[in-house]
Design a protein around this nucleic acid. Structure first.
Lengths: 219, 219
DNA sequence: GTCTATAGCAGGATAGAC
DNA sequence: GTCTATCCTGCTATAGAC
């Protein structure tokens, strides 16, 4: 495989650099020139490997974003197993921590969240793909996990909204960090992340309780 | 003033069209040519009135976005006065409704939220201005309003986070509507907005309760 | 698979007539 | 205040040598 090293590397480097640049500046804000320069390969490489710029963008989501999303989900599942019982509190804190801290480096997480934020603000074909292959299955998994922990009377829509509301806070505190730190007036470090996670968990549990009387939760 | 009509109109039309286009496609995604074409004025008009494209973007926030944000806030305050007592439930529902429905047309609100979403994803000098002149004062007003309705023991940071968490849901359900409708599988109409508002209020109140024991709330 | 060269076009900005 | 004409730069995409 050594003789193919440079081939594979160019394609991978393009994906790496493209993802970071798309995250920082958006699709329109980055030029193919800038990407190829950052990836230390020729201008023509994008067209050679991906056909055009748009397709490179999609491949970034397919080959980088989605696998990383799966890693985050997997880290969430693993951290759940840590404790024997699965209380609502435990689930939501694990969820928040997986997304705010998780298995990613600081730079990787920032990149990941920014791409998502951009797609939320201006959906492209990429969001369609994410909704289908990542978001919807994970929401299903999450609501299935929560359902036995709350009273039977709760509406499915309320449950779905709750999951989304929890996510709203996680995403907001995750990628709206500029606004968060500016308003709180403090650094966005691990200590803050921990406080945010436990805050989100507490807040969410209260919300879930309120929706339909008392619930049974451990922790 | 009749003889100045066309002068004033061009500038105003530019701001109107620029805002819509920036909201739809982002700063980089729109050309000055496109804006001037939409505003039915000459290509050179942007440079004449605003110096350059970037400054037009800032003026959109100063002359369109910020006044509208103040109108939303004002409509929130007005709707609060409707009832004699100000319960937490009432406050939060009014807040959510002001942002999800409020005094704006459907198109105006969508435009407003999208610009905000873009600034959150990729902050520019505009966000600095909004944080200082709109967000921070309003958050202060809001926390001052909520503080007397909850126990004294609560931390100021928790209170701030609560206000932000409530906003997170409102903004998420407001401008993440594509994701919302896709996941819920229903239309984003007035009925859904009403359900979302009352859901957000219930959820938030539960969250606030949970943070520090029981609270006194009406409604 | 990599690179140079370039076609072909669209972008922001401005000068200067009216 | 409005408009035309134009400069110059940068873009995507491709053809074709190596």
């Amino acid at each position: 495989m050594a003789e193919n090293e440079t081939q594979a590397d160019s394609r991978e480097r393009l994906l790496d650099e493209a993802e970071m640049l798309f995250a920082q500046k958006g699709f329109e804000g980055v030029s193919v020139r800038e990407i190829t320069r950052a990836a230390h390969c020729n201008l023509a490489a994008v067209n050679y490997y991906f056909g055009n710029k748009e397709n490179l963008y999609l491949e970034v989501f397919r080959n980088r974003w989605m696998p990383r999303a799966r890693r985050i989900q997997e880290s969430f599942r693993q951290s759940l197993k840590g404790e024997g019982h699965q209380s609502l509190n435990h689930i939501i804190q694990c969820l928040a921590l997986a997304f705010l801290k998780g298995p990613l480096s600081e730079a990787e997480r920032k990149c990941h969240h920014q791409l998502m934020a951009r797609e939320m603000a201006q959906p492209t074909a990429a969001l369609e793909m994410l909704a289908e292959q990542i978001m919807r299955p994970f929401f299903r998994e999450l609501t299935d996990m929560i359902r036995p922990l709350i009273p039977e009377g709760i509406q499915e829509e309320e449950l779905m909204l709750s999951a989304m509301g929890i996510f709203a806070m996680i995403l907001y505190f995750g990628f709206g960090r500029v606004a968060v730190t500016r308003l709180l007036g403090c650094e966005y470090d691990d200590a803050l992340r921990k406080r945010l996670s436990s805050y989100i968990a507490d807040f969410s549990i209260g919300g879930l309780q309120r929706l339909n009387g008392e619930i049974h939760h451990g922790g």
